[in-house]
Amino acid sequence: MYTTRKSYTPFVGPFDPCPPVRVKTYETPPQLYMGFQPCGLPQFQPKEALRHGTLWPALFAPYTNPYEQGGNRE
Rank of each mutant, 00 (worst) to 15 (best):
T4G: 10
T4I: 05
R5K: 09
K6N: 08
Y8W: 15
T9K: 15
P10V: 06
F11Q: 14
V12C: 05
V12I: 15
G13I: 03
G13Q: 08
P14W: 07
P14F: 10
P14R: 08
F15E: 12
F15P: 00
F15Y: 11
F15C: 07
D16R: 08
P17A: 12
P20E: 08
P20H: 08
P20A: 04
P20T: 02
R22M: 12
R22Q: 11
R22N: 11
R22K: 13
V23Y: 01
K24Q: 14
T25W: 01
T25C: 11
T25K: 06
Y26Q: 06
E27D: 13
E27K: 02
T28L: 12
P29A: 04
P30T: 06
L32W: 04
L32D: 10
Y33S: 11
Y33C: 04
Q37I: 14
C39M: 08
L41A: 05
L41P: 00
P42Q: 02
P42I: 03
F44D: 00
F44N: 01
F44M: 01
F44W: 11
F44E: 00
P46H: 04
K47M: 12
A49Q: 09
L50H: 12
H52A: 12
T54Q: 01
L55I: 10
L55P: 00
L55R: 09
